[in-house]
Amino acid sequence: MQKIYDDADAALDGLLRDDMLIAAGGFGLCGIPELLLSAIERSKVKGLTFASNNAGVDDFGIGILLASRQVKKMMSSYVGENAEFMRQFLEGELEVEFNPQGTLAERMRAGGAGIAGFYTKTGVGTQIAEGKETKVFDDETYVLERGIEADLAIVKAWKADDTGNLVFRKTARNFNVPAAMCGKTCVAEVEEIVPRGSLDPDCIHLPGVFVHRLIQGDHEKRIEKVTTRKKEEA
């Protein structure tokens, strides 16, 4: 079992092609696979569809792939932090499919779990449900949503062992788990690859079976909105 690659470019070698669907982890700029996104920019593949909760900011995260015009479509729940995104969206250059955040997460989880679709009460009676099948269970209406199976998943974790077992840190876990699960191939970037046996098996957040390739690297980990309180209030 050899999952470790030298760098992001090597880890993506042979996996990228035009017009593919990529699921990406992260919430805002927290826990995004920043090294793999940079490598995708360098690869120059285009026509990409991203299933990702957000679209980054102008010069970081998926934003760099919007600037380089490599993205055709976003499947997201909230995209408000990116001026270039808004420009392309309003000009009709970029297709956007809005998904309720929980529906997007569950679509990824389901797709990775062999579940083709599921009924949810989220969005019933709203434009999100238009054109979708609905069904009444126990007097309540639910809408059918499809699982997402991505050609590739790119995720970011805190630590991994060489078998791909992943541990995340604090709220940087977010969409990384469901995104990893739904990829036909999943590439993970981590801050540290630790020796086999040094992660507590009871505290693995994502088992290595979901992770096919791994890299270790230095992360910028940019903060989107620094908010603090005064010390004397503490």
Binding site: F27, G28, L29, C30, G31, E81, Q101, G102, W158, R169, K170, T171, A172, R173, N174, K221, R222, I223, E224, K225, V226, T227, T228, R229, K230, K231, E233, A234
Partner: peptide
């Protein structure tokens, strides 16, 4: 909803953690 129960106050200056944000993306 980004993945936390038991949210505390904003950090004091210098103790912001990029891995610890709320759903409004604030530290």
């Amino acid at each position: 909803e980004n993945g936390m129960l038991g949210m505390g106050p904003f950090p004091v200056e210098g103790e912001e953690d990029p891995d610890l944000i709320n759903a409004g993306k604030q530290t």
